[in-house]
Nucleic acid binder design. Structure first.
Length: 270
DNA sequence: GCGACAG
DNA sequence: ATCTTGTCGC
């Protein structure tokens, strides 16, 4: 048991009234830190094999090069009213651990209150995890949320672990450039707070649309990922982390693996 | 009242 | 998220 419920009082309780859920989210947003507070630098995420080889470094031994950070991906799958949460932890592109947990969902999906539907299963999965990840990639929004307390923020603050939100669609906020256009791989479009984000001044950059993958020529295109800070990371670093963990697919590797692991776990759920 | 809304 | 065949493109 490595991960600790640092803030047990903030655990998403699905029996709360909607007003109470929203109040809890405001508390969470107050404790959330959308600034870098990491034990690593995003550039050190890639495995040695992915980085340009430096024979000087290769020849030296014990030159202080630390192990790459542990990056965890979390994703859920559903079977009827059961939520299956899967966590896969990678270090330098290698899977180090993976766990899953199944929990009954108590409420339906409600935009803005996702953590109260999926949070229980996610925390149950984290309780199974033996490794303490350096950062967690959560499927969904972080700061890009009506009260700046999306799923990634809720999980990050509750466990006090650096967290990043990785979503496929925009929940709220305004892109600085239309997301209807086709952007090249690597493009980042800032998402700023508008009136729908009631807890912070308009214009604040609360995340980015990140084009992690794009087709070369044709009249076919891939939608960007929506990346936002969850806890203890800035908006730009959140995008850097997703960039560093992406490997040929739209989704970052930890998220992709958690996605398929959760999907496969559906078979062993009744 | 209308519109908009992660997974 | 989930239900699903075919289809387009590299």
């Amino acid at each position: 048991m490595t991960m600790q419920l640092v803030r047990p009082e903030l655990v998403p309780d699905p029996s709360l009234s909607q007003a109470e859920m929203e109040a809890l989210q405001r508390d969470i947003a107050e404790d959330a830190r959308f600034e870098d507070d990491l034990d690593f630098s995003p550039e050190t995420i890639a495995s040695a094999g992915d980085a340009p080889v430096d024979d000087q470094t290769t020849l030296r031994t014990g030159d202080g090069a630390a192990d790459p950070p542990l990056v965890a991906g979390v994703d859920q799958a559903f079977v009827d009213d059961k939520a299956i949460s899967a966590i896969v932890v990678l270090r330098g592109g290698e899977v180090v651990e993976r766990v899953s947990a199944v929990e009954q969902t108590e409420i339906p999906y409600i935009p803005g209150l996702l953590s109260f539907r999926e949070g229980g299963a996610i925390l149950a999965a984290f309780a199974e995890l033996e490794i303490d990840p350096d950062v967690v990639l959560v499927d969904g929004s972080g700061r890009i949320h009506f009260r700046e307390a999306g799923l990634a923020t809720h999980i990050g603050v509750t466990l006090d672990v650096p967290a990043v939100g990785v979503a496929k669609n925009l929940l709220c906020g305004t892109p600085e450039q239309s997301l209807e256009e086709t952007y090249p791989e690597g493009a980042r479009i800032p998402i700023t707070a508008d009136d729908s984000v009631e807890t912070c001044p308009g214009g604040t950059v609360i995340g980015h649309a990140l084009q992690t993958r794009q087709y070369d020529s044709p009249n076919r295109y891939i939608n960007p990922l929506i990346v936002s800070p969850g806890h203890r990371v800035s908006a730009s670093t959140a995008a850097d982390i997703v960039d560093a963990t992406t490997d040929g697919y739209k989704l970052p590797e930890p998220t992709r693996l958690a996605d398929s692991y959760a999907d496969g776990a559906k078979a062993s759920v009744e």
